[in-house]
Amino acid sequence: MSSESLLVRKIDWGTVLDHIPAWKGDQVIKLLNLESLKQNPDVSVIVLHNVPSKKLGRKDIVKLYHYMVSEDEAKILALVLPQITINYIRDWKVEKHSPGLPEKIVGKIRCPETTCITNVEREPATTRYIVMKEHGVIACEYCDTLLEIERIPDFLIG
């Protein structure tokens, strides 16, 4: 039994997000939208910070008991945190998931351009981005502003 598994018990149903860079676990919760997680009374969330890791030295782990990360959510997690591994757990059985990259991201990320219509108070405009992975950026579909993928965590909504 590895030292990390001693920290918290295994789950029988849900999602385990592993190999998250150390202290970035809270970003994962933001990307998954904490408010929507809260609305499901059966969901338990366990965030492990700064756990020893052979691969990363130190890492975070997020265990989502009774929550299956959707394909769209998995794609965004893989874009923002390329090292992440996503494991679905069903009846104790572990299934590794390798999501592709998203073509678009709706909501979740605030536009870095302060004069963008999505940042105008009370306008019912939801952010929408095109992913330009080959250029390492996402582009706001409304105002065209580019945001580097590694800067996405700084602009998460919530």
Binding site: T115, I117, V120, R122, E123, A125, C143
Partner: peptide, 30 residues
């Protein structure tokens, strides 16, 4: 009044086209 409400209101007067100048980037697409 928001841009959204302004557009919905003026559209209600049966206009065939809206020409818009606005200080926000992305306002025209919105």
């Amino acid at each position: 009044e928001t841009l959204y409400d302004t557009v919905k209101m003026i559209e209600g007067y049966g206009v065939d086209c809206i020409v818009l100048r606005h200080p926000a980037r992305g306002s025209a697409r919105f």
